[in-house]
Write a protein that binds this DNA or RNA. Sequence first.
RNA 1: GCGGGAAUAGCUCAGCGGUAGAGCGCCAGCCUUCCAAGCUGGGGGUCGCGGGUUCGAAUCCCGUUUCCCGCUCCA
Length: 578
Amino acid sequence: MAERETPAATKSMDDIMALCKRRGFIYQASEIYGGINGFWDYGPLGAQLKKNLRDAWWNDVVMVPCGGRRGPTGEPVRMVPVDSCIIQHPRVWEASGHVEGFNDPMVDDRETKARYRADHLMGVFVVWEVPKHDAQKTGAELMSALATLVEPQSSSPYPEFMVVAPHAAEALSSLAADPKQIPRLKRAQPINAVRGDGAALALLHFGERAFVARVGPVDLALLGREPERFPAPVTGKKGVLTPPRAFNLMFKTYVGATATEDDVAYLRPETAQGIFTNFKNVVDTMRVKMPFGIAQMGKAFRNEVTPRNFTFRSREFEQMEIEFFCHPSEARAWYGFWRDWRMQWWESVGLKGENLVLREHATDELAHYAREGAGTSDIEYRFPFTAPGYGELEGVAHRTDFDLRRHQEYSGVKLDYFDAERGERGPSGQPRGERYLPHVIEPSAGLDRGVLALLCEAFTPDPARASGVFLRFRPRMAPIKAAVYPLVNREAMPEVAARLHADLVGRFGRDGFIEFDAKQTIGKRYARMDEAGCPFCFTVDGQSLQDMTVTVRDRDTQQQERIGLDAVPAFLADRLAR
RNA sequence: GCGGGAAUAGCUCAGCGGUAGAGCGCCAGCCUUCCAAGCUGGGGGUCGCGGGUUCGAAUCCCGUUUCCCGCUCCA
């Protein structure tokens, strides 16, 4: 299959979206009302395609963990599922870091179109002009004079300039390296280190004049009230900045009818936390033993700043997450195991070849919970809109014990695990046991992104065939499993075909649609199935009535073979497993 | 949030101040023995939405929504 693959860059996303609409895979949500940004609905074929991918994950991950293969410890992989609520106690999201991490206020420069994190705007507050005779002194020589200087608080609350940096120290060093960030500034010298209020002092030279300035965070409340009195970074121009605007990425709602601020709750931005909050319950009730995983699939919600690229960045989406708990000493081995096996799984559902890559994260792009861990990898697919780059399908992260530790801290409930098989051996030869907070490997996949990747991968333009395009789904993923057609709507053909159709629906109808259609020419019906991605069409023709055979038309090759009517179920059963 | 482009039938698009169109698809009938064949007929659009200009707006102007591209953002 891989050798006939169509490069992602040659596929048009517009064409894929049009096909998705035309064939009932994906519609824009609330379309008759003009649509709603960042939300998409699945049509009949899309719903079944999505279910097939979801079922494959559930079966291959939860019910037959890792397809039956053994983990790095040599034992079978143990896995149990949960299904937790979308709305959790608000403290869950404080513990997870989402309340803090999802609330970066941003400031826009209306003139230059630049956007800044408000807490990264460092103000430069001039507190003292250095007398001319002292202007050539170094920062160190000024230190004694500065000891008696006016308190920085007495200077104006409005900065003279603004510099973009995460904190004062970095602002100072970047100013020293590149004074052009402030108009007319010739030279900047740091004077002292960052103080308690997050600010530091610097000596700034403008031509012949020199000033001592305090560099530090600006008053965000004041910036919100009077943005016109704050200078923009780089240009120094006033009146062009917007007030800080909160980009709250969590969907807020209210529990109860009163809807006061005390009732605020959030729709989960990830399913993972529902696993961590149930960790103790699962350990206490399920006789699981380390190492083991808890899996969950379900909807999650993120108020994305810019939903874009079809369903790739939707505000409502479905996740398939595993939290795999293990002893800290085994985390590295399990991390590698999961990373490699998840990659193979995506290949098994049809994303083969150079469009699928495994990318290990560089240290500086790791999330807050993963810095101390064995690593983070992304399994990425080259979508037409990311080509030649890639978009994330699944992240595999070693989250250390970050989440359990935080939930233990915020809830006050002990979440450590007593491992009876570890620890020193006592006189009887029995291990004394070891109590520890497990480490976690998290393979977290996006179901909607997976569906989109399947669609993009399957989409195969072919000017030689009537439909101009066909969808080359793996039979296991295809929403329509087979079609049964009488070649013509005459003689006994429709009746024979209808019987075969009923038989196949009974055997395979739970896995996907089995089509029946007697209208129109056979070529037209084949072409429709090409566009819908149906892998096999069984046709009853004149010969069928003589010798009880049918033709099987293969979607990918357009070739036909003739098999016995009674051989069709076995033929399909064999192919649909692939 | 910003800048640019777009929105007319299920799809692809034409129409650009004077009665809303074509091709394909879809549905029905006829005909048809293997790849969107042919014939006949049919359904389907308040021209994204809301204002304004005009005797008259799909068409011009303003606003708005959605989609696409580029920024920006992305635990």
